[in-house]
Design a protein around this nucleic acid. Structure first.
Length: 462
RNA sequence: GUGGCCAUAGCUCAGCUGGUUAGAGCAUCAGAUUGUGGUUCUGAGGGUCGUGGGUUCGAGCCCCAUUGGCCACCCCA
């Protein structure tokens, strides 16, 4: 018998970890609901054509495909073998696989909206907290199964939504104690305008991918790669100017206007960025701390469907972690599913990464640990019957209790309480039973007192 | 998908240029202690050294393959 193991990149979560994760989930959920979002759930798997081609070519390879059942049916052998040959050639074939695990929450949401747009009240504000799967190779902060927490607004072009979403980021991170985060924003239209000047719209993907690497590889390497992509000296010069835009947010805006101001597309993008940056609705702290909400012209984001404002949230530099959240506006996501004209904007939190950041910065409050408050010692049949009765009454008062499972010596029962960090022990032995009282010991202080049963039931257990 | 590093007790690790019976700390269990835990002391259990093959008189150590983990690239949360 082989040792049991987990699939690569997946994890079990023990009780301690689940508590901490729930703390994050609850915080995010509360903020989402505070802002008027309602929860949606979609299946773990989707029809494969719902997902393929939505994220870009590279990402299609990272979608987990589910093998069809019944491939061993003798009547189908010939067809299956032909289909499988196509799979070997890198194609996705319905005869072999027609379902896949979802890759993110946005596309399934768009599918849902496309299917139900007749019934929905717009703007539709939904949030979704579910696992997604990527066949990526695991490494730091990257797993094959991980949770996303998304909030999206569809059916509204208003930039108010962007402002709201930026506020949600702020509120969540502050509540979690991640006070040193940075929310970077940019606009796809700036990148489109830049591409328009430098080699045409079809170069946009290449350009965005390359400039996204600026902070990692530096300017020279970026210029080198642009040259390899077929851009000429003049075009690269423009991009260099674009990349060297620095300073406060207003300073960057004015430089962008100078560089791209001739382009109608860019002007629209800059206007929208200015609206967000200057919005009186953002918390005061944004304006006090310019670095919190930062205009970053080099921010690109890989996902193809973004068309407007894009967001990315990062923790402080000292925590070497990729982005802990991202999002943006898309003009026409449901158009992919035959229902055009529904724009949307959304954000996503990466809970697994937020967890790692909080662990590293020791941000979990001590009281996320909510275990048993009271352990009733088991000192015999008559004794434990009384203990059981009292325990149930305490439970009715929402005090978390348990009765030790067998009558063993004190030593063991104390050590059990110790290990489970149970603060109180209630001892009812033959002596107490006779005197109709009990011994209550505070294990943190090492102090104990004798209480009547009535007193025990009204004790606060703090 | 590409590259680098690693794999020894439940956990963290030691184990010399290949040489007798593979060690430590922590954890676990038992006892000192049948109504008072955390400390202490004593003892015990626990390993086909990730897996499969090879070289050798002899392999935890060397070689090949394989699986898994970590890290980086691509990409991303």
């Amino acid at each position: 018998m082989n040792k049991p193991s987990l699939p690569q990149g997946t994890r079990d979560f023990g009780p301690e970890v689940v508590r901490k994760r729930n703390y994050i989930f609850d915080t995010i959920r509360n903020v989402f609901e505070l802002y008027g979002f309602q929860q949606l759930e979609t299946p773990a798997m989707e029809n494969i054509e719902t997902l393929l081609g939505k994220y870009g070519e590279e990402s299609d390879k990272l979608i987990f495909k589910i093998l069809n059942n019944g491939l061993d049916n003798p009547d189908k052998q010939k067809q299956v073998k032909e289909d499988f040959q196509k799979v070997l050639d890198g194609k996705s074939v319905k005869g072999i696989t027609e379902r896949a695990l979802k890759y993110d929450l946005t596309i399934p949401f768009a599918r849902y909206v496309a299917m139900n747009h007749g019934q929905l009240t717009f703007p539709f504000k939904r949030y979704q907290i579910q696992p997604v799967w990527r066949a990526d190779r695991p490494q730091k902060g990257r797993y094959r199964e991980f949770y996303q927490c998304d909030a999206d607004v569809v059916g509204s072009n208003s930039l108010l939504n962007e402002v709201e979403l930026a506020n949600i980021y702020h509120e969540v991170f502050i509540r979690l104690g991640i006070t040193n985060y940075e929310l970077r924003i940019n606009h796809r239209k700036l990148l489109a305008a830049l591409a328009g000047i430098c080699g045409g719209a079809d170069k946009m993907t290449d350009i965005t991918i390359v400039i996204d690497k600026l902070d990692k590889f530096g300017l020279e390497k970026v210029k080198e790669e642009l040259s390899q992509k077929g851009l000429n000296k003049k075009q690269i010069d423009v991009i260099e100017k674009y990349l060297s835009i620095k300073g406060s947010n207003p300073e960057k805006i004015s430089q962008l206007k100078k560089l791209l101001g001739n382009s109608e597309t860019a002007r629209k993008g800059i206007e929208e960025l200015e609206f967000i940056l200057n919005s009186g609705l953002t918390p005061d702290s944004y304006r006090d701390h310019d670095s919190r909400l930062t205009l970053d012209p080099t921010l690109a984001r890989g996902l193809n469907y973004y068309t407007g404002i894009i967001f990315e949230a990062k923790a402080t530099e000292e925590v070497k972690m990729g982005s802990i959240g991202g999002g943006g506006r898309y003009d026409d996501l449901t158009g992919l599913f035959g229902v055009p004209g529904i724009p949307g904007v959304g954000i996503s939190f990466g809970v697994d990464r937020i967890y790692d950041v909080m662990e590293e910065l020791k941000l979990f409050p001590a009281d996320v640990h909510v275990g048993t408050q009271v352990l009733f010692f088991n000192l015999g049949e008559a004794e434990s019957t009384k203990a059981f009765e009292l325990m149930q009454q305490l439970r009715n008062k929402s005090i978390r209790c348990e009765l030790y499972h067998e009558n063993v010596k004190f030593d063991k029962q104390f050590k059990y309480a110790e290990k489970k960090k149970i603060p109180f022990a209630v001892i009812i032995g033959s002596k107490e039973l006779e005197e109709k009282n009990c011994t209550l010991k505070d294990l943190r202080k090492g102090e104990q007192q004798t209480l009547s049963f009535e007193k025990l039931l009204s004790f606060s257990f703090q």
